[in-house]
Write a protein that binds this DNA or RNA. Structure first.
Length: 201
DNA sequence: CTCTTGATCTTCT
DNA sequence: GAAGATCAAGAGC
């Protein structure tokens, strides 16, 4: 063979450079939509972030609203780290801490478009359908094998990798899902028209 | 398609 | 003791 052909990977599976930790040192309302289109990998498995929600300590729906506790301590720390918590006693959910130390704001990662390690994700989820592999905060942590062992880990160091999007995507916003307080705030962001959302906007 | 319910457990009141 | 940033399966339409 004279020269091997470049394999035909979709553009979506060929993301940009790693995001620096400083990316998170801004308002959660800038970071949250800014994450749509970025690629999240844990041990090389993951996909494109297509849905997130913003939480802030002034927001009654946020875990940090009533001040620091053992569970939410990472939220009160510096930006650029993962906050993982147990949901309904069954699932894990992952957030990215934003702004600055003490501001206790974070972005909940709610859905991914699977691109890397799809076979591993199918195995962990016991599911074949790609569309629903990571279409929810509890689903994507199962697919990426995220647990409380990842709580407090840096977002720019192994096993976590976060790669910038190549093009600026079209973003839609709406009210958040599954909360009972501050339900009217439009702090859920998604990739317009994506098939991989937890719920259509 | 929508609606209801069970699973399971940590956190805070 | 109740609620919760969820999910999947089953019933009903």
């Amino acid at each position: 063979m004279a020269r091997s052909r470049i394999p035909p990977v979709p553009a979506a599976a060929n993301p940009g450079r790693p995001l620096k930790r400083a990316f998170f040192g801004r308002s959660v309302h800038e970071v949250a939509p800014g994450l749509i289109g970025a690629t999240l990998l844990v041990d090389g498995v993951g996909g494109i972030i297509v849905e997130v929600e913003a939480y802030h300590h002034t927001d009654p729906a946020a875990h940090s609203f009533r001040g620091p506790t053992p569970r939410n301590l990472v939220m009160f720390g510096p930006p650029g780290f993962a906050y993982v918590y147990r949901s309904y006693g069954i699932h894990w959910c992952v957030n990215f801490v934003c702004e600055k130390e003490g501001s206790a704001s974070a972005v909940l990662i709610r859905a991914l478009e699977p691109t890397h390690g799809i076979a591993a994700m199918r195995r962990r989820r016991g599911l074949h359908d790609e569309r629903t592999l990571c279409s929810g905060p509890g689903k994507l942590t199962e697919a990426l094998a995220i647990t409380d062992a990842h709580n407090g880990l840096a977002l720019d160091a192994p096993p976590i990798a976060l790669l910038a999007r190549i093009k600026k995507p079209e973003i839609v916003a709406g009210v958040r899902i599954g909360i009972t307080k501050a339900v009217e705030l439009p702090w859920r962001y998604g990739l317009k028209g994506s098939r991989f959302l937890s719920k259509v906007f």
